[in-house]
Structure formats: structure tokens, C-alpha cells
Write a protein that binds this DNA or RNA. Sequence first.
DNA 1: CGACGCTACCGTACAGCGTAAGAACCGCCC
DNA 2: GGGCGGTTCTTACGCTGTACGGTAGCGTCG
Lengths: 228, 228
Amino acid sequence: MATREESRVDRQVRLSRERVLGAAVALADARGVGSLTMRSLAESLGVEAMSLYHHVANKEAVLDGLVEVVMAEIERAVAGLASPAPEDDWRRAMRMRVLAAREVLLCHPWAPGVFETRRGTSLAVVRYYDGVLGLMRRGGFDYDLGHRALHALGSRALGFSQELFEPPGEGAEEALAAMAVEVPHLAAMAAEASHGVSGRLGWCDFQAEFEFGLDLILDGLERLRVAS
Amino acid sequence: MATREESRVDRQVRLSRERVLGAAVALADARGVGSLTMRSLAESLGVEAMSLYHHVANKEAVLDGLVEVVMAEIERAVAGLASPAPEDDWRRAMRMRVLAAREVLLCHPWAPGVFETRRGTSLAVVRYYDGVLGLMRRGGFDYDLGHRALHALGSRALGFSQELFEPPGEGAEEALAAMAVEVPHLAAMAAEASHGVSGRLGWCDFQAEFEFGLDLILDGLERLRVAS
DNA sequence: CGACGCTACCGTACAGCGTAAGAACCGCCC
DNA sequence: GGGCGGTTCTTACGCTGTACGGTAGCGTCG
């Protein structure tokens, strides 16, 4: 009776690897990757935990799938970019690519942490770095300098680099002030910055700092490239 | 009878936070941080798991303690360094400091992973970065540029930056060759490198690449400093 | 000198994790 | 209509971190 209609309609369609990974991303976005368990993931799909194992090998595979999904988002963002041909201006092309990737990652704050545990394993990531290397090739790099450039960029090529301090939160400034004796230079720096001497709003603009570091590296590479 | 002598002599001395953390480092060094559980840690001290909780609040506190111990090692290594005064050559001073830190971290391969989960929380790490900032101050940086420099360096200041590929392992080259269609540039780069064109031994010297990236950043900062 | 309290330690227990094994059920083809 | 293959559920195991309560030895005081 009811069971016939219910059984396959409640959970709208059959499970699939795509649906599982999609739910995993949604759950990580909503509650953090820490609360992504096989049971909670199953529950969010209206299903029992063990059912997931027909579509993913194990939890590691779920995490692999997570980076796959995010990388696909990044590839899409990069593809839709109106960036200059690397032959004309590789630095601008690279800068736009990296900032596009970063924008995607900023929507998935858990992603860097997951990436860090799986770098090198994932085809999607390797393929992305291949694209970066290709961009530099077209921009005039030989493979040797390109290789070193990849190392110099590291995770910055993907739009993140472990942030020194996480978003300050409440009373971070007071905490730093309390440590003033232990860390005089940092305390002085924070004091100066919040006096508005530097003219930046807030006392630390992460996006600006990221771009600063990125440009520093890109400029250095450009100097090496023309010298080679 | 026996009990009196035994009970406090078998386990040579009383437990203490220091002994617990020391054992934790030893265990992580030997078997990886993944197999560091409260039970295994207790066992390595000849004690029951719950006894640890009289000296550390919980497992998080153990991990905090791990970075504390490693940072102490780094501070010691840095202190014993015959580096030039930053006033004379801040780049060389910085370079030596960072490479000294890196040498310590290379003895504790698990450390970067643990650091990454706790950065910003730990006084020892903040203090280290304060030292870095102080070095740059003495080298002629104002706080604003020093601030941005810290961000540009990121974890490189501590001697690591998530390596792009972990130590290649067996057959990594073959794996890359198999992906040649997917990642043509990387495959070509690897092929060229292993032909010995570049003259480096092996096909990727991580230490050299780390130093390359570090120097790239330091050179860029120096240019900005003299311009400011 | 004997009792008492403090603290370090142990034993037990529990909830939550990933997942192995097998039973139950669905939709499809013969 | 009967069987069959794949999907889902049920149950259970070993592992984790850790809450709780009991115990044993030392230091102090009456």
C-alpha cells in the first residue's frame, strides 16, 4: 500500500556517487568537515550509513570526492575567465586564475584542510597544476624554471596558503595586548595598525595580504624568466 | 612488601606533563601521529590511559603540547645560530633561521600537519613569528611591510610549506607517464628532468626547491624594503 | 603514633566512529 | 510468476576519547 509509493519517493531518487558527494559538500559547507560522518551523511540523504558503501569505497573516498567536486568548480571558474593569453601577459593570466580558484575556496572554508591531506594523490589537482605549468610555458618559462615556480607557489596556486591567524574573532586584539610582554614586535605592529597609520581598514585584510604574497612571488618569477 | 618498592620504581618516576609530552613526541616520531592515541601513549609510559588526564586536559592539549615541544627545539636551534646581525644582512639572518627551523621539522615529519591544525592558538608559534618580525625590524622594515612579509612567508617562515608531492615513492614516474595524456606539461617536465637536461640529481630536490621559493620571497621583500 | 585527607593512579563504562557481514527488499527480465 | 542482481537495512565489532568512581600511598596534623 503506502510502502510502494513511499519507499522510493521519500528519498526522491536512487542514491548515486554524485548525490552522495553533493550531500557531503553541502554538509561540510553547513556544519564543517568535522561533523561529516558516514552516519550524518547518510541521514542527510534519508538513508542508513551502510548504504553509502555501495557508491563510495569508504570515507577516504568521500574525502577524495570532495576535492574532486571542488576542483571541478575551480576548473569551471577558470574556464569562464576572460584572462589575457599567457603569451601576452602570463602574470595577469596567472593572477586571475589563482584569484578565481581562491574565490571558490572561500565558499568552502573546509577545503584547504581536506586538500592538504590528499595533495599529490588526486588527479584533479595534478591536472590543475598541469594547467598552471602550461600557462607558464606559454608565458615563456622553460620546464626547469616552471618546475621551481610550482614549488615556489605551492598551495598559493590553488588560492590558499594556510593563513597565519584565522579570522581574528572576538577580542583577538586584547589577547595580543595581553601577550605584549612575550611578543613585543607583534603587539607594536598591531597597535600601530589599529591607530590607522597604515590606512587600511580593519587591522588585517586577508585578501590583500594574499594578493601581496602572490604578487611578490609572481614578480620574482618574472625577473628570473627574463633573465634566463 | 614488594608492592612498596615496586609500585613507584617500575615506572621509574612519577608521571608529569613533561614526561607525557616527551613520550608523545617519541611515539609520533616512531609510529606517526596517526597512531598516537591516549591508550597507546599511556602504554608507552607503562600506565593506564586515564592517568594521563591528571597531567593534560585532553588529547587536544597533548597536540598543543607537541607543537610546544617542537617549537622549543626550534628556538634552541635558532639560538645556537651564528647568523649575522640583521642590521648587516637581514636576508642571510632570516635564511639561516628558517633553514634551522626546517632542519628540526624534518626530524618530525608529523609536525607540519599538527601545526596546521593549531596555528594562531599557540603562544610558542606566535612568539616565533614575533622573533621573525623583530629580525625584519632590525633589518630595516617598518611594521607595515613586516606585517605583509609575515603573510607572504606563511609557514615557510617555520621551515615548511605543504610539499606539492610527497617523496615520490615507488613508481611515481610511471604513474605520471600513465597520466601523460591528462597532464602533458607535467609529463613533459618530468621527462625532461629525468633526461638529466637540468643537471640536478634525482628529478626533484625538495630542499633545493624550498630554498628557491624562500629566496624568491626574500629577494622580493628586499626590493620592496629598499624602495620604501 | 595513628587517622585523615590529597592527589595520582586504575578499572569500568559509554557514546560515537568507520565498516564487515548477512538478511531483506526492490525492480527487472525470462 | 519466479527467480535474480543490485540496493538498502540491521546488527555487531573494534577502536576512539573520556566521564565517573574507587583505591592506594604520601604528607600533615592531633
